[in-house]
């Protein structure tokens, strides 16, 4: 295996190992996601045909907020334990660190979604467990995780800690949010036309990945 790939795996494995011991990230994220589904339904009193219209939006708000909650933790955790310095001293490229952190975040988010999507399907009665929606979920999650990894590294260094993350992430990831919601709506109700959202999501991801990859070194150095 290439040394860079091995280093990436080391970073990912480290994050997963920390999580299996601390268990303060996945549990919080999962409970929060399920809780928001319930709270949304209570607040909006969702019944009848309106569920189909607003369902995708609710699903993606839940995913976005749970993602912010979870991703905020990953770097703050490093910061609190002083392990970030260790990672930065380690002889590896900043790009490797970014990809490793991104993959770890993706794994956490996918685990959260593996519970949230079935729960959503049951509670809201919408068929989201189908390949097209899963593909959209993967793409949308990648978009949130890409900028989320970059911004959570920034937020962890601030006095506000993870409270800063939503301020940075929510306005910049609007294209991902719109794309994911619209793509999901189109899959669930194919009578509505519109642009090829899945392709657009792909394009957004390419742009965000390039930006985040290039800027990451400026965020963790110094």
């Amino acid at each position: 295996m290439m040394p860079a790939a091995r280093q990436v795996l080391t970073v990912v494995r480290k994050d997963l190992l920390v999580e299996t011991r601390a268990r303060d990230l996945l549990n919080v994220m999962l409970t929060f996601a399920v809780l928001s589904l319930v709270i949304f339904n209570l607040a909006l009193d969702l019944r009848g045909p309106v569920v189909r219209e607003v369902g995708p939006g609710l699903l993606w708000l839940t995913i976005a907020f749970a993602a912010i909650l979870g991703m905020g933790r990953t770097f703050v955790r490093e910061h609190e334990r002083g392990t970030l310095t260790g990672l930065l001293i380690a002889p590896m490229d900043r790009g490797v660190l970014f990809v490793g952190k991104l993959l770890a975040n993706l794994i956490f988010l996918f685990v959260m979604e593996a519970v949230t999507l079935p729960m959503f399907a049951v509670l809201f009665g919408l068929p989201v467990l189908q390949p097209a929606v899963l593909l959209i979920t993967a793409l949308g999650t990648l978009g949130f995780a890409t900028l989320g990894t970059l911004f959570s590294a920034m937020a962890a260094q601030s006095r506000a800690r993870e409270a800063l993350l939503p301020l940075l992430l929510l306005p910049t990831t609007v294209p991902v949010l719109i794309g994911s919601v619209q793509a999901t709506s189109h899959v669930l109700d194919d009578t509505v036309g519109g642009p090829p959202w899945i392709g657009l999501l792909l394009a957004f991801n390419v742009i965000f990945l390039t930006l985040a990859f290039l800027l990451f070194e400026h965020v963790v150095d110094g």
């Binding site: 900028l147 970059l150 920034m154 940075l168 306005p171 910049t172 609007v174 294209p175 719109i178 794309g179 619209q182 519109g194 642009p195 959202w197 657009l200 957004f204 742009i207 930006l211 800027l215 400026h218 965020v219």
Partner: peptide, 21 residues
């Protein structure tokens, strides 16, 4: 500066996505 770069690149993407939405 990082936000200054991302913010500006983001503007046309946001505009396109909102427009198509």
């Amino acid at each position: 500066a990082v936000v200054g770069v991302i913010g500006f690149v983001d503007v046309p993407i946001v505009h396109m996505s909102v427009r198509w939405w």
